[in-house]
């Protein structure tokens, strides 16, 4: 296999990166970890004339938070940096667990959170858990920056609201009032398999009553899918096993998975039912995010 030709730039800072991107627009692609971009270029799904590498923008790797403040994850933080971050392990374990389980070690060392989001594929593992935690993202261009709720970012497969001249620079996870969250994925082998179904949930429990719940499904639609009917099943209710099963059924019903070589629509729907119930159960039991 080989990579089609392109011109390569590795700008020294963000403003130069934005300037280059403005100059080349849709003819350029941003290179972060490369695990997905180079893969697609080898298949000529993408044939950018220009590659703008973010390798020199080390500030975008940072993961930080002030007590009581939002959590900031730089777009270039790798999946392993997220999985191994003590800050995340302590306060947002569901995010670090999702990063750990999404790919094998080699890929986790290269793949970035920004890439996993911007790539916009239905099986992406990080967007669902970030969405249930109310994450926003920062998009920067020569025009300035804007912040977009991640839930509103996706439009379809490889389609998002990002403009050709914008770079995703960070993910903002707000301080949580939720009591538990988790992401459960299902792949066809224990490693090196895309999720054929995934469910992220975040709940706020008050005793046995579920005060709020957010459920987002992976690989269930062209974009991460908010399972609102499933949420409605449990919000304000006393949680029972039967109720969780009903929520699972609701999530399965509102999901729209496609059939592929990895699984039929019918199978994926049923997986969503099971995973939703299991994820809710786990998040409710947990005493951390």
């Amino acid at each position: 296999m080989y990579l089609p030709d392109f011109d390569y730039y590795a700008p020294p800072d963000l403003s130069e990166a934005c300037r280059l991107l403005r100059e080349f627009g849709s003819r350029a692609k941003i290179l972060a970890g490369g695990t997905d971009l180079l893969h697609k270029m080898k298949h000529e799904e993408f044939t950018p004339e220009v590659i703008i590498s973010l390798k020199n923008l080390s500030a975008l790797r940072e993961i930080r938070s002030e007590p009581g403040q939002d959590l900031l994850i730089g777009a270039l933080a790798t999946q392993n940096e997220i999985a191994n971050s003590s800050l995340l392990q302590e306060k947002y374990r569901s995010i670090s667990e999702a990063a750990w389980n999404m790919a094998n070690n080699q890929i986790r060392h290269m793949g970035t959170i920004g890439g996993n989001i911007v790539n916009a594929v239905p099986s992406a593992d990080l967007p669902p858990i970030l969405i249930v935690l109310g994450a926003r993202i920062t998009l920067v261009s020569t025009e300035g920056e804007r912040t977009v709720p991640l839930e509103e970012f996706f439009l379809g497969v490889h389609k998002t609201v990002i403009r050709d001249d914008e770079i995703l620079t960070q993910v903002i996870v707000p301080a949580q009032t939720t009591t538990g969250s988790t992401y459960i994925r299902f792949g066809l082998r224990k490693s090196g398999a895309l999720a054929i179904a995934g469910v992220a949930v975040a709940v706020t429990m008050e005793g046995e009553i579920c005060r709020s719940a957010r459920i987002v499904l992976a690989a269930a639609a062209p974009l991460p899918l908010r399972a609102r009917q499933a949420e409605q099943v449990i919000v304000g209710q006393r949680v029972t096993p039967g109720l969780l099963e009903q929520a699972g059924l609701a999530a399965a019903q509102e999901s729209r998975p496609r059939s592929s070589i990895r699984g039929s629509t019918e199978y994926r729907r049923d997986l969503i039912r099971v995973l939703t119930r299991r994820a809710l159960h786990k998040a409710i039991q947990k005493e951390h995010i």
Partner: peptide, 16 residues
């Protein structure tokens, strides 16, 4: 062939 690669022709991993 739909899965002429090692991602979708799944030979087991060390975890399997």
């Amino acid at each position: 062939i739909l899965n002429a690669n090692l991602a979708d022709y799944r030979i087991p991993t060390a975890l399997d």
